[in-house]
Design a protein around this nucleic acid. Structure first.
Lengths: 112, 112
DNA sequence: CTAAGATACCTCATCTGTCAAGGTATATTG
DNA sequence: CAATATACCTTGACAGATGAGGTATCTTAG
């Protein structure tokens, strides 16, 4: 993950929910998708990922169920709830607004 | 600060350093500048701000000195060090790269 | 057959940054 | 004289991220 880490920090939930907006998925697969999308620049630490799943499920934003693989390691699939869709939309809106704001704050002001 | 809070979280150092890149300044003034630049959407909690100052100073990124006001409350001015300039540049570069990455991660992928 | 690596999940303890809540002190303005 | 603005500070609690450890299955190379 080299760079990026600090900025992505705090957006764990939004990234996970974005994946679940497309389809039910499971931890390992979501993390593979993130690695692939970032060209290897970022990946979740496992502890971070599973902590987030528990947090989101306990708050009612996602639900989980065991996959019925008859081969390979078992998978716990997650599904986004209507409540989670709302959260996702709010997080995206926040991101958009806040990215614009940060863009203004992070560069030095002209001297007065 | 209503919205924004989560996204700005983690960029305290970069925002402070950006201000100090322009000129030496002090806590209260930096926070006023932030409020003004964001149209009132965001401001630092004082504890967050002063915690950050201490962290940055202990790490050698900024130095401080007391202003010589002969009126009004005393001010502790902060000055960015060469080491701090380096950090600032690194943080900005990270922000730019990471904002682009997040932009890709935060929207749902097309179903395959 | 066996070792290594990929797949897949989980927990615990610790660290770091944020922030609510409290405090001090001075100057200005109604 | 009270309220408000300026200006700084500390403490304790909390939440999210993470290092380090663990379990189990399947595939592939030697």
């Amino acid at each position: 993950m080299s760079i990026a880490s600090d900025v992505i920090r705090g957006h764990t939930d939004a990234i996970i929910l974005a994946q679940l907006m497309a389809e039910d998925s499971y931890g390992y697969k979501i993390n593979r998708a993130v690695v692939e999308k970032t060209g290897g620049l970022f990946e979740f630490k496992e502890a971070t990922l599973y902590t987030a799943f528990r947090r989101l499920e306990q708050s009612g934003y996602i639900t989980s169920y065991w996959g019925d693989e008859n081969t390979g390691a078992r998978r716990r699939y997650y599904s986004i709830t209507p409540y989670g869709v709302e959260l996702y939309q709010r997080l995206v809106a926040e991101w958009e607004q806040s990215a614009a704001i940060l863009q203004r704050l992070i560069y030095p002001p002209k001297q007065s």
